[in-house]
């Protein structure tokens, strides 16, 4: 039973859930993810990164944005209820070592999967710079947690409502221009952000890891739906990734592939909204 032991709303559409999953909590390492279902009969399987875990207490944390049919349904579950199915940990752990100076860049909800990696990098002895970007102040998540571990924390927002008014690439470029240059960059966020973050570090030859969140079905390497082109080769994100060298990833193709089901997803979202409204009306 994957009981929701804590549910918190972090911003308008962003939720944190702590779920019992003892085996996953024990086996997981930073960078790995799960596949979750709200219903095993007709439910969709969606990948979510494990944001945190406690192997002793047997729980994992996920942070998600309720933007699609399944995440919206997930957001409707209450504390004490159970998530129907959780499979994991999937994918490879992040390769952690003392690189020297690591810059972690998180865009929007990407700050959630970034956090355990940043923490592990810090624990391994790296000097840690963190750049967190969001559209506006309300959408900045985990600021407190990052403040605790970062040697340097830069917050940027699109509208300037918090931190600098800039895109994450601006401070990233500045860091790359410093001497000595950072030894590693890790960028996690919307694909377009990862694309530009990788393009920013490229001229400075700063090794840049990105964590890809493609469409998935099984998460075990069986379906090929998660495939991306990396360095001209086809790779499966679920078993070869989720982390890849950002300078090698064909982001344009990946972004287009992510749109494969846009029409169907829109329909599903509307159905889900209608469902929620009907329930809300029934409750009044």
């Amino acid at each position: 039973m994957h009981t929701i032991i804590e549910k918190r709303q972090l911003s308008e559409q962003v939720y944190l859930m702590r779920i019992t999953a003892p085996l996953i909590a024990e086996a997981r390492s930073p960078g790995q993810f799960i596949i979750l279902q709200v219903d095993t009969e007709y439910g969709e399987r969606i990948p979510l990164t494990i944001a945190d875990a406690d192997p002793e207490a047997g729980w994992i944390t996920i942070i998600f944005q309720a933007v699609g049919g399944t995440t919206m349904r997930l957001a409707q579950l209450r504390q004490g209820e159970a998530v129907a199915a959780v499979l994991g940990p999937l994918g490879n752990p992040t390769h952690i070592e003392n690189f020297g100076h690591a810059v972690c860049v998180g865009g929007g909800i990407g700050a959630a999967p970034l956090y355990p990696i940043a923490q592990a990098l810090k624990d391994a002895g790296n000097r840690l710079s963190v750049i967190i970007g969001a559209r506006s102040k309300e959408l900045v998540i985990l600021e407190e947690q990052f403040t605790r571990i970062a040697d340097e924390l830069i917050i940027v927002t699109d509208d300037g409502s918090h931190g600098r008014k800039a895109l994450v690439t601006e401070p990233l470029k500045e860091l790359c221009e410093r001497d000595p240059r950072p030894d590693l960059a890790v960028a996690i966020g919307p694909p377009i952000m990862m694309k530009f973050a990788a393009a920013t570090t490229k001229p400075y030859d700063v090794r840049t890891m990105v964590s890809l969140n493609t469409i998935m079905v099984d998460g075990t390497g069986m379906c090929g739906g998660c495939r991306v082109t990396v360095g001209g080769e086809t790779r499966f994100v679920c078993v070869d990734g989720p982390e890849f060298d950002g300078h090698q990833v064909d982001f344009d193709n990946m972004i287009k592939r992510l749109q494969s089901y846009r029409a169907q997803e829109e329909r599903a979202k509307h159905a889900c909204l209608a469902e929620a409204q009907a329930t809300a009306k029934g409750n009044v």
Binding site: Y42, C223, G224
Partner: peptide
């Protein structure tokens, strides 16, 4: 891959687009 197409249709029941959440 046929595996993906078939898994969506069979296991995830995507052929039944009224009920299934998987596209």
């Amino acid at each position: 891959a046929a595996n993906e197409f078939l898994t969506r249709s069979n296991l995830m029941k995507a052929y039944d687009s009224d009920k299934a959440h998987t596209p």
